[in-house]
């Protein structure tokens, strides 16, 4: 099977500090890939490189057969890669409904948007998705007034309505209650029926519960890959990461 995403020895140089030092990653269709690793391992930076927020100083990023290493952010999104940031970044001054409206998969050119009308199908789609993320009752509220967990869901909803082929999630369950976490985990697996997901997560219980393939990062490199069981057996991982965490617990 052809990978959706291929990162080939990607390095990122922040004025002499290498946040990524030749990271490799392959993600296949319908996969839910968890990225774990201690703080500062470079997980967020890797997602930033994939979505174009940060530029790789060397290496390549391929999305199917497109080389997206130097592509502008909005073009990468238009190809079908969508990104959820670590801190919820929705538009606080717009209503929940308007946030979803902007996220709709559409022609984002100026003149197309000037003429854009909300079609019946779009309206139904937004209603369905708002129901799924349990925000339909808040449709007319300013997004800034939502709770932290609701903001996270709204942002996930805004990714879903784009029907991306690759979804990048950075710590999506931060600040959520146990029930919300459970629901988010299920949501992520529902999503994976239609697209590949790369998800950065710190919460090990959540990873255990919802992961199949896990990639461990350390000091800007990929340390190893496998199921959670494989990884827990890996001595290096235990040493740098799990071991340390278990000690802390």
């Amino acid at each position: 099977m052809k990978p959706v995403l291929m990162c080939c020895s990607v390095s990122v140089d922040f004025d002499g500090f290498y946040a990524l030092q030749g990271a490799d990653l392959k993600v296949y269709p319908h996969e839910v890939r968890f990225l774990i690793g201690p703080n500062g391992a470079g997980k967020t930076t890797l997602l930033d490189v994939i979505c174009g927020k940060t530029r790789a100083s060397s290496g390549k990023v391929l999305f199917y057969s497109h080389d997206i290493t130097d592509m502008p952010e909005h073009k990468i999104v238009q190809l079908g890669i969508s990104r959820k940031f670590q801190s919820p970044s929705i538009f606080h001054q717009l209503t929940v409904w308007e946030n979803m409206e902007l996220a709709l998969k559409q022609d984002r050119g100026l003149f197309a948007v000037l003429r854009a009308k909300m079609s019946e199908a779009d309206r139904d789609m937004i209603i369905t998705l708002l129901q799924r993320i349990e925000l339909l009752d808040y449709a007319d509220q300013k997004a800034g007034s939502l709770s932290h967990g609701q903001k996270q869901w709204l942002e996930i909803g805004m990714q879903l309505i784009q029907f991306p082929q690759l979804l990048l999630l950075d710590e999506p369950i931060a600040g959520m209650s146990a029930a919300e976490r459970e629901r988010t985990g299920e949501l992520i697996h529902e999503i994976a029926r239609d697209c590949a997901v790369v998800i950065v997560e710190h919460d090990m219980d959540f990873v255990r519960r919802f992961s199949k393939q896990v990639t461990v990062m350390h000091e800007g490199k990929v340390l190893c890959e496998g199921t959670m069981e494989d990884i827990q057996q890996n001595e290096k991982v235990v040493e740098i990461y799990l071991g340390r965490e278990e000690k802390a617990c």
Binding site: V77, R83, S89, F91
Partner: peptide
């Protein structure tokens, strides 16, 4: 949306 967060607008494909 641009006033709110220009970067976010970029990551919605605009």
């Amino acid at each position: 949306a641009i006033r709110d967060s220009e970067n976010r607008v970029r990551f919605l494909g605009f």
